[in-house]
Structures are given as structure tokens and as C-alpha cells.
Simulated scan of single mutants.
Amino acid sequence: MIEQSNPFQKISSLEQALKHLKDGLTIMFGGFGGVGSPPGLIDGMITNNLKNLTLIGNDTGFPHIGIGKVVSQGRAKKVIASHIGSNPVAGKLMNEGLLEVEFSPQGTLVERIRAGGMGLGAILTDIGIDNEMVAYGKKQMQLNGKDYLVEPALTADVSIIYAKKADPYGNLVYDKSARNTNPLVAMAGRFTIAEVEEIVPLGSLNPEEIITPGVFVDMVIPSNGVNWKWVWE
């Protein structure tokens, strides 16, 4: 890797990124059903035999797609998601007591992630307040005569996201539905790693198309062996 004196340069390698992913961490991931999840980072987690993970994201993917590969191999001890229905292995592990699952309605889940990224402690919602399974064990409060559930904000030790393009400063552009949850997840990690399809020179991205500003990204790595060195030539 080329050494750079510019402190704002965030381009790195998969090998370096995986040093930040360790056993027992809480890892938040972007994407929906595997689309928009970072494939290289997920495969690297499996190769490095990570375990005892707490995973936060929209769903558990499919058994052999996305974060589902990590879940299906029993590497997660807990999942916080809106559903696990597309991954029957996750359901089996849950029923056998080998995987703790915290369900959160999809809108509530993404708002909890957004709140975490904004530095808030919790959100108030009336979604699920009349549902025993959703409301069980949760604090409630009344505001302006209306009852709400108190849903804690969500953050993670590391957030892993996937984007279409990045510049050396970590500004990101997403591709259509692969954008799902990634911008919010990027904000909610104490350390955020973006795996990207293409790294372009600084100034190449139209400021109007940048979805995630580089201030929320700590490291950018190329996906599928993309050659990034030309960026600095």
C-alpha cells in the first residue's frame, strides 16, 4: 500500500480492515436481504473465524448470501433485526437457543440506528405498544397524553457498509436499492469501514450525488480486487 502524508486519505486494504473486526464485537451491517452488504468483509469475517458476534442490521440475509453466511455458521451470539424469515438456519438456531434474536419493527429499527448515529439515547414510538411480544420488558412513557415505547438507540463497535463509488476522503455514492440502510449504518459505528466497487480521484464526485459524507467513514477498501493505486498517480 502507498504511504500518504495526507491525514484525510482513507483508502486501505481488506487485510487492514479485518484487523478491526474481532471476536465478541458488535458489528452493524448495511443492506437488505444481502443486497448492499459488503461481500469481501463478510467473507473475511468467516475466513478469520470470528465468533461471539452481536450483529445489527435489517435482516439475516439468506443462508449463503450476505450476513446470512456468518449467522448460518453459528458465529453470532445475538442478532438485532427486523426479521429473519429469509434465513431458515437463523430460525433453527434461535429455536435451539443458540442464537438470541431481538426483533424490532423495520421502521423502528432504522430510526434506532439513525438515533444512534445522531448521538441520541432513545426514540419514542407507539408501534407495537399493543403487541405483547414487541412491548415485553420495554419502558413506556406518556407524552402529551399519548403512550409510547422507549426504544434505545443502536450503535456498534464497527459498522461495515457497501457503496458504488468512493473518493480518497471517504465520500460515498450508492447504487439504487443497494443504498438500503447503508447511510444510517455508516453514521452509527464507532469505526466505519466502507467496501466500494470503484474508487475515483478526489473531485470526481458531484457534491450533489454524495449520500454519505466522508466524515462518517474511517476506512475505504476496494471490493473484488479493484485497483486503487491510480488514484494517487
Rank of each mutant, 00 (worst) to 15 (best):
M1E: 09
E3W: 08
S5C: 06
P7F: 06
P7R: 11
K10Q: 03
I11K: 06
E15T: 10
Q16S: 14
A17I: 14
H20E: 09
D23N: 12
G24F: 12
G24D: 07
T26S: 14
I27S: 01
F29L: 03
G30C: 07
G31T: 10
F32W: 14
G33I: 13
G34R: 05
G36I: 06
P38W: 12
P38E: 10
G40M: 08
D43Q: 15
D43H: 15
D43L: 13
M45A: 14
T47P: 03
N48M: 09
K51G: 06
T54F: 00
L55E: 11
I56R: 04
N58H: 14
T60Q: 06
I67L: 10
G68K: 03
G68L: 08
G68R: 08
K78G: 09
H83G: 03
S86I: 12
V89N: 07
L93I: 05
G97N: 09
E102K: 13
S104H: 05
P105G: 11
T108Q: 06
G116Y: 00
M118C: 11
L120K: 04
G121L: 07
G121F: 05
A122R: 08
I123A: 11
L124A: 12
L124N: 03
D126S: 14
I127F: 01
N131E: 03
M133E: 03
V134N: 02
Y136C: 01
K139L: 07
Q142I: 14
D147M: 13
Y148M: 01
L149E: 01
A153H: 00
T155F: 00
T155G: 01
S159I: 03
S159L: 04
S159H: 02
Y162K: 07
K164H: 05
K164C: 00
K165I: 02
A166W: 00
D167H: 10
D167L: 10
N171E: 12
N171M: 09
L172H: 09
K176R: 15
S177T: 05
A178E: 09
N182D: 14
N182A: 09
L184C: 04
V185A: 07
M187D: 09
M187C: 13
G189F: 08
G189Y: 01
R190H: 11
I193H: 06
E198V: 08
I199G: 00
I199S: 01
G203M: 02
P207N: 11
E208F: 15
I210L: 06
M219R: 04
M219Q: 01
M219Y: 05
V220C: 07
I221K: 02
V226Q: 12
W228R: 03
W228Y: 13
W228N: 01
W228Q: 00
K229R: 12
V231S: 07
V231I: 15
W232Y: 15
W232I: 09
E233Y: 11
E233D: 14
